[in-house]
Design a protein around this nucleic acid. Structure first.
Lengths: 214, 214
DNA sequence: CTACTAAAAGGTGTTTTTCCTGTTTTTTAA
DNA sequence: TTAAAAAACAGGAAAAACACCTTTTAGTAG
């Protein structure tokens, strides 16, 4: 059984070249090719029982660009591996593609053996990266845009983390050796402090602010 | 009013050197120095009304290392900016520090003006990065470790995103122009499909899998 | 046309959460 | 030591969430 690959690139010549390459690989075959993200959506929806394992996405496309396409694939088919393809390497596209959920970035002038190695690595390790990617990524990791000053108490933090863990408040109370009513108090004061409506808001806040890591 | 800085480094000589440097800066002053993460915890807890704006943390420390220290600061005082300090640059520490929540990474042999520039940038922009950080970060961005294959339907995805947004199910139903009972159905089937107990589990799953981005 | 299937909607009851209003106990500070 | 503040605890009502099971609707393959 071969792993299936879809190529998305408006440049027909290149996408056919890649198709040819991939089809010579032992473990991979090209399912089909698309000219843009919209076509990907159509194909995916048309044959939901035939979703590829890997999608190679060009960054620069008309209609629906690589970033949008990647976002859509990742959101709708979380198990499909998206590998970004591009000629350039200098601007923020790498970052954007990776943020969008691509698991790697490959230059278009890559050699045949590099492509095969990349595909294999994706299947085996779940990711691939070329070695020349710059520190643009830092921006993404360090992206903690202006935050309010909130000083949490030790117990509030402990509670917040437990609240992210599917436990009921009663169970949280047991874990913290406190009365359920005290837990109610923590919750209520956090709701006010963080200006959220319900536990969902609390969980999202905790994750966004690295208080809880999924 | 000067911004306050705390230096955490077991190497007294270096931490004093940094202290001297910082104290010559117009907008910054050193509040105190610590020899390890434990000391940071003590000081923070002892004077909760006097939390620094920036903490410079050495990576290699005994007792409680830079990564643990950073994690603790970020989790407990989310508005403190942590800048990592290290002599080395080659292994995974950069990544770990940044993942832990440090907003930048500075080499210890940095010149005085570089340090000042870094501090200013942190205050103004909320982050700083040296230009020589490698693509170790890719691993973190591409970290979507082995996932189950779950094919969501269009409506399930739409629902999941709304479920992350503090809306009640009734409100979600209205937004989707569907009966609340249908929404109940979506929820129940997703609970089963994803093996979660409640809405919290759903939200965490959605965020972890980039279906919803906070 | 009929049988099958999946999505949508409905019924009913239980559990949990949320939101009030308090009181008691412990800590902190004057 | 005493007053004030913070933390822990409580009762109860209303809303929301959760579970399970049935019915209707709409499409579609045979």
């Amino acid at each position: 059984m071969k792993y299936s690959v879809v190529v998305v690139d408006d440049h027909t010549l290149l996408s056919q070249a890649i198709e040819g390459m991939v089809n010579t690989f032992d473990k991979f075959k090209v399912l089909y090719t698309c000219k843009n993200g919209g076509e990907v959506q159509d194909k995916f929806k048309a044959s939901p029982r035939n979703i590829p394992d890997i999608v190679l996405v060009d960054v620069n496309m008309p209609v629906m660009n690589g970033i949008e396409t990647t976002e859509w694939i990742v959101a709708n088919y979380p198990n499909v591996h998206v590998l970004a393809l591009s000629v350039e390497d200098a601007d923020g596209t790498i970052l954007k593609m990776l943020k969008a959920g691509a698991i790697g970035y490959l230059l278009k002038d890559a050699q045949k053996d590099v492509l095969e190695k990349a595909l294999l690595e994706i299947i085996e390790n779940g990711f691939y990266h070329t070695r020349n990617v710059t520190n643009l990524l830092l921006d993404s990791v360090s992206g903690k845009g202006g935050r309010r000053r909130v000083n949490f108490k030790e117990n509030e933090l402990k509670f917040m983390r437990l609240a992210c863990s599917q436990l009921t408040y009663k169970e949280i109370a047991e874990k913290m050796f406190l009365s359920p009513k005290t837990i109610d108090g923590y919750r209520d004061s956090l709701f006010t402090k963080l200006d959220v409506r319900n536990r969902v808001g609390l969980v999202v806040y905790a994750i966004k602010n690295k208080i809880f890591t999924p």
